[in-house]
Design a binder for these strands. Structure first.
Lengths: 233, 233
DNA sequence: GCTAGTGATGTGTGATCACAGTTCGGGCGG
DNA sequence: CCGCCCGAACTGTGATCACACATCACTAGC
C-alpha cells in the first residue's frame, strides 16, 4: 500500500464536537469572572447565544455541574454557586495544599525551557500590574497563565487537570473582586508572592515554592473573605 | 402560614435524574473492576441494559469521559482507556501525593467518631483478607471503604471529590488484578500498610500516615506494573 | 488469488419534540 | 386597597428522530 509522501504533510484534522466548544466557552466565562456567583443561565438562551441547539449546551453544563463550577438548584434552575464561607475556606485550603504540591514538584523538576516560560509569564504579569491604568481582565488572564506555567512543569498531567477544575470552582469568586479592584491585590501581595515563587523555582527549592504559592492563594482568599460577599450559612 | 410540626419530620424527597443514576451505575462498574481496560461500550446497548433511552446514558458517559474514566476513540467508539506505562506512573504518583495529603490531614484533625469508623473499616478489611477463600470483589469494596473513611476525616470535601475522581481513573487497572489475584496484594503488603496508616492516625502523626498510604499505593502500582498489562507507548 | 470498491449495520452527535414542574404577572374577589 | 388564584411563559429532563461516519462482510475486477 504505497501512497504519495505528500500525504505525510497533511495535518491531522481536529475533531471537535460542539459540546466541547460550548464547554470551553462557558469555562472561559467562569474562569475570567464574567459569570458572577448567583448568576442564572438558561440552556435555551445559552444555546441561542452560541448558535447551536440545546443539546451540546446541555452536555457542557452537565460537565460543569459535575465539576462544581455550576449547580442546579432544587427549582431546576442552573446558576453559578454562591459559596458559603465554610465552603470557600475548604476550597481555598484544598487549593493551597494541591497547588502547593504542584509548585514544589515544579521547583524540583523543571527544566530550562519550563523555567524560561515561567520567567516570561511572571514578567508579563508584573509589567501589566505596573501599567498606569491596570486592566482587570488582562491581569486575571496573565495571573492564570503564570500559575499554569508553573503547574505545567510539575510533570504530572493528572495533577494539572485537577488544578484546572479547582480554578473553575474558585474562578467566579476570585476574579469577581480582582476584576473590580485590580489595584488592590495586583499591586499588593501578588507581585511579591510571585517573585518569591519564581526565586524558589530558580533555586529548585520545593518547600519554599509551595509556601510562596500557598501564601499567594491565602492572601487572595483573605481579601475575598474580608469583603464579605459570601453566604454565612 | 402555620403548619403542623409533623411536617418537619418528613425527609427531603430526593430528586435524582436518570442521568445521575446511570452515572452511579457506570461508576460502580468502573470502580469495582467489572469494566476492564479496553472494553468497549455502546450508548444504545447500555441504555437498553439500564432500561432507559440513550439520553441519560449519554450524559453519564460524557461526564465519565471528562473525568478520564472513559475515552472516545477517534473512531467514535467509547471504551475504558488502556493506560500507557507513563500515564499509569503519573497517575500513581499523583495519587500518592494527593491521597497522602488527605491522610496527613486526617491524622491531624480526625475526631473520635471518625477514628472509630476508620478502625471498623480496617478491621473489616483485615477480617475479609484473613478468610480462608478470599473474595476479590468484596476485598475491593472493603479496601475502598477503608480508604474513603480516611479521606472523609480530612475535613476538605473538595479534596475528597478529587480523590474519588482519581479512583475512577485508576479503578479498572487496579481492581483488575486485585480481583483476579486477591491473595497476592491483600495477603501481602496491604494489610501491613493499612496497619501502619491506622497506627499513624491514632497517633495523630500526619507525615507517617501520608508515608504509609503512599507506600500502600506504591506497592499496588508496582505490582500492576510488574504484570505488564499496560501499553508501552 | 488478492486487492479495491460497495453495501448493510451500528456508532456517536445533534436537532426537535413532549412533558412535568416552576416562576411570575394580571385580574378577580374580598 | 390588599391578598389570593389562575394561566401564560419558561425551565430542565427525557424520548425520538435524522445524519455523518466507521466498521465489516462480501463481491466484482484485475
Amino acid at each position: 500500500m504505497n501512497s504519495s509522501p505528500a500525504l505525510a504533510d497533511l495535518p491531522q484534522i481536529e475533531r471537535r464536537t460542539l459540546a466541547e466548544t460550548a464547554y470551553d466557552a462557558l469555562s472561559d466565562l467562569l474562569a475570567s469572572g464574567r459569570l458572577v456567583p448567583g448568576d442564572r443561565l438558561s440552556l435555551r438562551q445559552s444555546a441561542a447565544a452560541l448558535g447551536v441547539s440545546v443539546m451540546p449546551v446541555r452536555e457542557a453544563v452537565s460537565r460543569l455541574v459535575a465539576d462544581g463550577a455550576l449547580e442546579v438548584a432544587p427549582n431546576r434552575a442552573i446558576r453559578v454557586p454562591v459559596l458559603t464561607v465554610a465552603e470557600f475556606r475548604a476550597l481555598a485550603e484544598t487549593r493551597m495544599a494541591v497547588e502547593g504540591l504542584a509548585a514544589a514538584r515544579s521547583a524540583e523538576r523543571r527544566d530550562a525551557a519550563e523555567l524560561a516560560a515561567i520567567r516570561r509569564a511572571e514578567a508579563a504579569f508584573r509589567a501589566a500590574a505596573a501599567a498606569p491604568r491596570p486592566d482587570g481582565a488582562r491581569a486575571v488572564a496573565l495571573n492564570r497563565d503564570l500559575h499554569f506555567a508553573v503547574y505545567a512543569a510539575c510533570g504530572l498531567p493528572p495533577l494539572r487537570e485537577i488544578i484546572a477544575r479547582l480554578w473553575l470552582k474558585a474562578g467566579p469568586m476570585i476574579n469577581l473582586d480582582l476584576r473590580a479592584h485590580p489595584e488592590r491585590i495586583v499591586g499588593g501581595c501578588a507581585i511579591r508572592r510571585h517573585a518569591e515563587m519564581l526565586a524558589a523555582i530558580e533555586a529548585c527549592d520545593g518547600p519554599a515554592a509551595a509556601a510562596a504559592l500557598a501564601a499567594d492563594i491565602g492572601d487572595a482568599a483573605e481579601f475575598i473573605l474580608s469583603r464579605g460577599r459570601l453566604r454565612e450559612t
